[in-house]
């Protein structure tokens, strides 16, 4: 039995890695400019070849691919953390309104700075997103103290999301500026327009957060048995809960700051990974979710870019198409199991 599960883990991770590589290539290779595999290799390895192609790959496609990879991974790990925290598989940064809260504050900060003729740096955006995420999170925590039912919590989260989105739209509509087009695109969710400095910042922030999360996999595993048992195993619950909230908020804030709100990745991916690995052990799920989220977002971004090319879809609409059915399936199954 142990051997069988270990083979399952190995095969699953290998499959995810292969998918990731394939999707990276597919993403480099798709778009308005067609390139051959040989050309891509040459461009990647030695930066040789046609200058335009080289620029397209290095300055446009690669940063975008890396953003999708890093942010997608971060988003699904953030979802996994929230699910552990609330003891419910349908919790996630988007349904709980955390992404929308982050979006709202980021939009406010952007517009405020634009009004003064400044552009917001990535650090400022992350900080703003983090503040927004914490505001939504605080509200959700207040609600969760009063109602224990997850469905009500999710409804509250969705409502917070709507309120934040509505106010954001309102603000965006009335802030007249040429840059608002960008802001509008961003507020729908998109990986486009990512620059190398952005990639460096998000990679640094997310690498550190993920490393910390991974080091917490032992208490997270204990917490899966419930608060009381975790406490009996020697987990300092207060400290643990604060750490979990901070980590998941940083992750989803970072994603929102760069790519806007992206729906359902945080729920669908952890669920798919759990089903694939047949376990919920954090030590496997944290890397698994990261890889899975990267694969999922690369795939969705590929579709967003290519299906109606040259028009681009917002990433959130694509993730919703693939992610929402998974969430519905989970809710129905949970309900039928509870009865």
């Amino acid at each position: 039995m142990r051997k069988k599960t270990q083979i399952r883990y190995a095969v699953s991770f290998a499959a995810l890695a292969v998918l990731l590589l394939l999707l990276v290539f597919a993403n480099i290779n798709s778009g308005s400019v067609e390139l051959t595999v040989g050309e891509i290799f040459r461009i990647l390895v030695s930066r040789e070849g046609d200058t335009t192609s080289c620029n397209i790959v290095w300055e446009i496609r690669l940063p975008r691919i890396l953003a999708a990879l890093i942010l997608g991974g971060a988003l699904s790990v953030s979802g996994f953390l929230l699910q552990t925290f609330f003891g419910n598989p349908i919790a996630g940064p988007f349904v709980l309104g955390i992404s929308s809260g982050a979006k709202f504050i980021v939009a406010l900060v952007m517009i405020f700075l634009l009004g003064k003729g400044l552009t917001a740096g990535s650090g400022t955006l992350i900080a703003a997103a983090f503040v927004g995420a914490m505001i939504s999170m605080g509200f959700i925590l207040l609600v969760s103290k009063r109602v224990k039912k997850m469905s009500i919590l999710v409804i509250c989260g969705v409502m917070i999301g709507y309120i934040c989105s509505a106010v954001t739209d309102f603000v965006v509509t009335f802030a007249d500026d040429s840059n608002i087009v960008n802001l509008h695109n961003w507020s729908l969710g998109s990986f486009s327009g990512t620059s190398w400095p952005d990639v460096r910042v998000m990679a640094a922030v997310i690498a550190v957060t993920l490393a910390l999360t991974f080091l917490m996999s032992k208490p997270i595993g204990a917490y899966q048995l419930g608060e009381s048992y975790a406490r009996n195993m020697g987990v300092n619950i207060r400290r643990f809960r604060i750490a979990l909230i901070l980590l998941s908020s940083i992750l989803s804030a970072c994603v929102t700051a760069f790519a806007g709100p992206i729906s359902f990745v945080g729920i669908a991916v952890p669920h798919l990974i759990k089903t694939m690995l047949k376990t919920a052990k954090p030590i496997l799920l944290i890397p698994g979710c990261f890889l899975g989220g990267a694969v999922f977002c690369l795939f969705c971004d590929l579709i967003a870019r290519t299906v109606f090319a040259p028009t681009e879809l917002s990433i959130s609409s694509v993730t919703a198409v693939f992610g929402a059915p998974v969430v519905i399936y989970m809710m129905v199954r949970r309900q039928s199991r509870a009865l």
Binding site: Q224, L225, Y229, K274, K278, T279, A280
Partner: peptide, 14 residues
């Protein structure tokens, strides 16, 4: 000290 509690546990996939 170890405990066996009344609360119903439903851990996922354990």
């Amino acid at each position: 000290l170890a405990v066996v509690l009344t609360e119903r546990l439903r851990p996922e996939l354990m």
